[in-house]
Amino acid sequence: MILKGKAWRYGRNVDTDVIIPARYLNVSEPAELAKHCLEDLDPGFACGVHPGDIIVAEENFGSGSSREHAPVAIKAAGVSCVIAKSFARIFYRNAINIGLPILECPEAVEGIGLGDEVRVDLAGGRIENLATGAIFQAQPFPEFMRRLIDLGGLEEYVRERLGKE
């Protein structure tokens, strides 16, 4: 799958509390959550994001709370992919489970600025900054996670497992 969009650039330790503050967790509808995505970090994000846009951040993206509302809000806001130097472990699982593409690639994070147009070839993990022409290669996923990603998430995996049993 090829993804293309403008980069939103953030720093280290973007926690799930700023991705979706608890004051909005009394609902779980994705479209409702998307309205408040990243509100406490970047109030301009939710109204400025375009379908396909890409979040690019430093280390430990998605730290803190296990709230799956965080990747759900990002996905429902139209973000096609999150590229970070590293991800917090629960966010990493949650993103794969719900089918939000994520890529670990420290070099790409260094080489992409706010507003740069970015093209991602998800299958090969190839990231291209169309503004500069620079090309980066993301870390490959372990085999089991690849399978989950190819299935579109954990729901489909469990559906298959339950069907077999």
Binding site: S66, I90, R93, N97, L154, L162
Partner: peptide, 20 residues
């Protein structure tokens, strides 16, 4: 360990979970 809601749903359905 903490997990998200979809992982928890899978655990409730299967009685197992994948872990690294």
């Amino acid at each position: 360990t903490g997990v998200g809601s979809t992982d928890l749903a899978a655990a409730m359905a299967l009685g197992e979970t994948w872990l690294r």
